[in-house]
């Protein structure tokens, strides 16, 4: 792609005709898209081999704003859709870009099963700790004591610790950053592209309109300052210790980086063992 000095370096990755986007002032989703575009530039990935899949929600809108092969799927079904894409054309790099409500709540089962099968997907989960698009209801990731529209006297349900959940299910690469850690986030995304298997990157992002306002935490900028002050980088931290609290420390870093055979390798191994020469690779059959 030719470098033009007069435009933003991420402009070639955006559908400029759809800007300005719908995200609120101070929302961090745009920042994560920015990091994603820069990770694409850095990793020099072939954009023709890349597909981006989103579910429903504020973060689900990413699919409509990036100039890539992108799909805006039904609620919670971003991972099954991406699994289908990957199985039909194993040469594709498939990225799932969605929110915590989409991936961990309605799509929670898909998340753990994709991690268990170790399908080669890069999942970027923008976690704003609430259902933002529908009006600020309690999500499975909302930390205890937070006030939401469905828990006006504070939440009392224990929240999901997403890195712990996907590690237990079998993901090979797990990192967490906040929208304050832009360079680290872009580097993590580049690393995930070069990793074979189920990669999960959680990005803690402010929701100034619903979560921060209801919990009297100020606006997006105040939240970014809070991330700067309260986040601690601990690479390789045991994921059972990285749960989020309302006002406490946020442990960030690369928690897991391991190797396990991915779905495709396991499928090939099993079928070659059972069928021998009669087994034909899917790619050779339909995608030539």
């Amino acid at each position: 792609m030719p470098v033009d000095e007069t435009v933003n370096p991420v402009e070639p990755f955006l559908r400029s005709d759809r800007m300005p986007h719908i995200w609120c002032p101070g929302c961090g989703i745009g920042t994560t898209v920015n990091c994603f575009a820069r990770a694409l530039i850095e990793s020099k990935i072939d954009l023709q081999s890349l597909a981006l899949v989103s579910g429903i929600g504020c973060t689900g809108r990413v699919a409509g704003y990036v100039k890539l092969d992108s799909f805006h799927t039904t609620h919670g079904r971003a991972i099954p859709f991406a699994t289908g894409l990957k199985l039909a054309n194993p040469k594709l790099n498939v990225v799932v870009y969605s929110g915590d409500g989409d991936l961990a709540a309605i799509g929670g089962n898909h998340l753990i099963h994709a991690a268990r099968r170790n399908i080669d997907l890069k999942v970027i989960c923008v976690n704003n700790l609430i259902y933002a698009m529908t009006g600020g209801q309690t999500a499975p990731t909302t930390p205890g004591h937070a006030t939401t529209s469905t828990n006006p006297y504070g939440t009392f349900e224990p929240a999901f610790n997403l890195p712990h959940l996907v590690e237990a299910a079998g993901a090979v690469y797990i990192a967490r950053w906040t929208t304050f850690h832009v360079r680290q986030l872009a580097r993590s995304m580049s690393e995930a592209f070069s990793k074979k298997g189920f990669s999960f990157i959680e990005v803690i992002s402010p929701c100034p309109t619903l979560y921060q306002r209801r919990n009297k935490m100020g606006d997006g900028l105040d939240t970014m300052k809070y991330y700067k002050e309260k986040s601690k980088t601990r690479h390789g931290a045991p994921t059972n210790e990285v749960g989020l609290t309302l006002n406490g420390e946020i442990v960030v870093g690369k928690f897991v980086d391991r190797d396990r055979p991915d779905y495709e390798a396991m499928m090939r191994g099993q079928y070659v063992e059972a069928l021998g020469d009669r087994y034909v690779e899917c790619g050779e059959m339909v995608c030539s």
Partner: peptide, 16 residues
Amino acid sequence: CDLCGMYCPDFAIYSK
């Protein structure tokens, strides 16, 4: 350094 460009959620600023 283009840190402003990386932070901007609206793709409205960049530096070269």
